[in-house]
């Protein structure tokens, strides 16, 4: 009886998803496969595979992958460190991870402009110290920096959740059996935290591959990403069909990379 009531409570969500997630996805599909006169065509997809658009997609995946890797390298030690602290300090540090998210991310990205620009905070400091100015803004480094800055919490939080729940007795058992510190980490802690790595990678890679804000603000539009391309189709060229085809391809890219990550994660767990 109780189980049934709980299931009923899920209907609003199912309805919501059906109307606002699944139905629009079918509309995007319908758009992607239709020609200007409404007939069926695959021309939109054929166009998406022209070299110029492939280059844009490759650039997006490349930047997102770099961003995800950096987030993992920075986020894992951070999560590991926080999870090992006393309860009180943990709360404080987690709070610090979350606080920036209270502010709109567009605003935070704008803030980087003032830090990185030619007469910005960093260059003014360098000038004061008599050092040469650096070209920090409007290059791929600035775009990746912006992405890492915005998405790092999405890596730290799932990793922390998993690491915090790691059974300490397993670590102790490994130590008792004579494993070195590195051995404990690589053969016990790391394998146990793989689900966290997986969700962290997913949570960072997805927004990173679809974003168009960082490339616009910090890349000075020198770097057009697939997100910019889709925006352009809908807002300046009115080519909803090509835009939809690009969106479908983007969804496929994400599905495939998530599938690959899942497979890799699953294989890791078995060993």
């Amino acid at each position: 009886m109780r189980g049934r009531n709980i299931k009923k409570a899920a209907y609003p969500y199912i309805l919501w998803t059906a109307l606002f997630v699944i139905a629009p996805m079918f509309l995007v599909m319908a758009n992607a496969f239709s020609a200007a006169d409404g007939s069926f065509t695959t021309a939109n997809f054929a166009r998406a595979f022209e070299p110029i658009y492939l280059a844009v997609m490759w650039r997006s995946v490349e930047l997102a992958a770099v961003c995800t890797a950096i987030c993992l390298l920075l986020g894992y030690p951070a999560a590991y460190f926080i999870a090992r602290l006393r309860l009180k300090s943990r709360g404080a540090l987690l709070f610090l991870v979350i606080v920036p998210m209270w502010m709109n991310f567009l605003l935070r990205t704008y803030a980087w402009l003032t830090i990185l620009e030619k007469n910005g905070v960093i260059n003014s400091a360098l000038e004061f110290l008599g050092l040469p100015k650096l070209n920090l803004l409007y290059n791929s480094g600035a775009v990746v920096l912006g992405m890492v800055y915005n998405f790092l919490p999405f890596m730290i939080l799932p990793l922390y959740t998993v690491l915090e729940k790691t059974d300490g007795t397993l670590v102790e058992a490994a130590q008792d059996l004579g494993a070195s510190r590195a051995g404990v980490f690589f053969r016990v802690t790391l394998p146990l935290s793989l689900p966290g790595v997986l969700s962290g990678v997913t949570m960072v890679f997805m927004p990173a591959v679809t974003t168009f804000v960082e490339s616009n603000l910090l890349g000075g539009n020198h770097f057009i990403l697939i997100g910019n391309l889709i925006e352009q189709q809908f807002l300046t060229v009115y080519d909803w069909r090509f835009g939809s085809a690009l969106s479908v391809i983007l969804m496929l890219i994400i599905l495939i990379s998530m599938g690959a990550a899942e497979l890799a994660g699953g294989a890791g767990e078995e060993t």
């Binding site: 110029i52 658009y53 844009v56 539009n221 770097f223 057009i224 189709q233 080519d239």
Partner: peptide
């Protein structure tokens, strides 16, 4: 124009 502009930016 859109295609050409994409080529410029990319």
């Amino acid at each position: 124009y859109d295609k050409a502009w994409t080529e410029v930016l990319a």
